[in-house]
Design a protein around this nucleic acid. Structure first.
Lengths: 246, 246
DNA sequence: TTACATTTAAATGTCTGACAATTTAAACGC
DNA sequence: GCGTTTAAATTGTCAGACATTTAAATGTAA
C-alpha cells in the first residue's frame, strides 16, 4: 500500500484515495481482505478513528464492505448491478436537480438514449418485458391515478423498454437518464387528454416491439419526445413567469 | 431531521441515510449549512466520531463539503459535472471489471449509445470538436505510439464525438460507457494494420460529421463496432484458452 | 464418535475526552 | 480609519477504553 507524502488534504481522504487506487488498479482484488483497522492505523501512522473515516468513505462508494467478528474485517466488494444502479441514479438525479438542467436538454438526452436501445429491443424483446409494458399501459389508463403514480408507471414502462434490449450495461447506463427525469416529470400536471395521448404512444411502441419493427418504435418514441417537450415547456414557462397566481 | 428508529445497521450508515434523504428530497438545499457535528451528535444521541463517519460517507458521494474554522461546517454541495463524471466513471469501470462483463456486451452498449449521439453531433459539431477529432486521428497514425497511448487517444476521439452533440447530460451518461471500456481495450494488441483500419473509420466519421451526414457517420460507427468486436474476440478467445504459450 | 454447549480470541462498532489547526469576526491599539 | 491581535467556533486528529459480534477452538455428554 502506498504512503501519504507530506501535506495536503484530510488524512482520511488521502488514505481512502490510496486504497481506492489499489482497488481500481486491480492490486486489491475482489473479496480480498484489507488489513485490520489497527494495522492500517499503524501502517499509515494515524489513529484508528482516522482510518475508520477513510474506510467509511470507501464503503459509501460500495468499494468495500465490512464484517464484524473474529474473521471479519474490510473486504473488497464486488460491485453488483443493484448497487451500481443506486449510485448512478442518485448522482444523475442530483446532477439534474442542482444544476438547473433545462427540461429540453434532459428530455433530448433521454429519448436519444432510448432510441439507441430500440433496435436491440425490437430484436430481443421477450413475452416477459412485453407483458410488463402492457401492464403499465393498462395502469396508465385507470381514471383515479394520481399524477405521481402515472409518472412512476411511465418510468417502469420505459425501463421495461430499455431492459428489452437484454444488455445489462445498456440498462445500467440508461437507468440514470430515465430515473433522473422523474422529478422533472413530476412537476407536470397530466390531464386526461394528455394521458390518453401518452398511452397511445406507449401502445404504438409496444405493438412495434412485439412485431420486431424497430423503425416504427423509433418513430413513435420521437413523437412521444416531441409531445413530452410541449408538456414540459408549458410547465417551465409557467414556473419562469413572475409570481402571478390564479 | 428524522430520527433512527430502534435497531438495524450501523448508526453512521443510518445517520448518513437520513441526511441523504433530506438532500434528495430537497429539504436541505444547495449551500445550506448542516448543524455542527456536536449538534448532530446531540440530536441523534450518538457520539461525535459516529456523526463524523456519517458525514464522511456523504462527502465521499460529493453530497456535502466541509470547511474548518469559525463559520465552517458541513454544507450541502452543488454536484457539478466533473465530480459527477468521476463518480460515474469509477462505478462503471468497476462494474465492468468485476462482473466478467463480456467484451461483446460492453462493446454493443457503447456503440449503441454513441450512435444515439450521432444525429445531434452531425447537426451541432463545431470547428473545435472537429479539430480535436482530427488531432487524435493524426496522433493515432504516429508510428511509435504505444498500445496504451493509442487506446487513450481512441477514448479522447470518441469523447469528442459525444461532446459534439452539445448536450451535457448526454456527455455525462456516455462518459461511463466510453471510459469503462478502456481497460478492456487495453488488453488488445493493436497491429499496424488494425491501427490503419481504425484510423480509416475515424476519418470517415469525422468527415461525415463535418458534412452533417448523420447516416454516413452511423454506418461508419457500425462498421467500426464490428471491426472492434473481431479484435476483442481474438483477445478473449486467447485468454480463455488454457495455458498454452508459444 | 458424534452432537451440542461453552469458551475464547479477533475484529469492528461506539463512546468519552482531549488537543491541534483553521478561519472568521470582533476587539484593540495606533 | 486602518492594521493587528485576540477570541470563539468548528472541523481534524489522537488516545484509550468498552461493547458487540462472529467463528473457531475447546469441552462435555449421549
Amino acid at each position: 500500500m502506498k504512503i501519504d507524502p507530506d501535506n495536503k488534504a484530510d488524512l482520511s481522504a488521502q488514505i481512502a484515495e490510496a486504497i481506492r487506487e489499489e482497488i481500481m488498479a486491480g492490486r486489491l482484488i475482489v473479496d480480498e481482505r484489507l488489513p485490520s483497522e489497527a494495522e492500517l492505523a499503524d501502517h499509515f501512522a494515524v489513529s484508528r478513528p482516522t482510518v475508520r473515516e477513510a474506510l467509511k468513505r470507501l464503503a459509501a462508494q460500495s468499494l468495500i464492505r465490512t464484517a464484524r467478528g473474529a474473521f471479519g474485517g474490510a473486504f473488497v466488494n464486488r460491485l453488483n448491478y443493484p448497487e451500481a444502479y443506486g449510485q448512478h441514479i442518485t448522482t444523475s438525479t442530483l446532477l439534474l436537480s442542482m444544476n438547473r438542467v433545462s427540461f429540453d436538454v434532459a428530455c433530448e438526452a433521454r429519448y436519444a438514449l432510448e432510441r439507441a436501445c430500440t433496435p436491440l429491443a425490437a430484436a430481443r424483446r421477450t413475452p416477459d418485458t412485453l407483458a410488463t409494458m402492457r401492464a403499465e399501459i393498462h395502469r396508465q389508463g385507470q381514471p383515479g391515478l394520481t399524477d405521481e403514480s402515472f409518472c412512476a408507471s411511465d418510468v417502469t414502462f420505459h425501463r421495461a423498454l430499455v431492459d428489452s434490449a437484454d444488455n445489462p450495461v445498456l440498462s445500467y447506463q440508461l437507468a440514470g437518464a430515465v430515473e433522473a427525469m422523474q422529478p422533472l416529470m413530476n412537476m407536470i400536471t397530466f390531464t386526461a387528454r394528455s394521458r390518453e395521448a401518452i398511452v397511445g404512444f406507449h401502445t404504438r411502441i409496444a405493438d412495434a416491439l412485439e412485431r420486431h419493427e424497430a423503425d416504427v418504435a423509433q418513430a413513435a418514441l420521437s413523437e412521444l419526445e416531441a409531445y413530452t417537450l410541449t408538456l414540459g415547456r408549458d410547465v417551465m414557462a409557467a414556473r419562469a413567469r413572475p409570481r402571478q397566481p390564479a
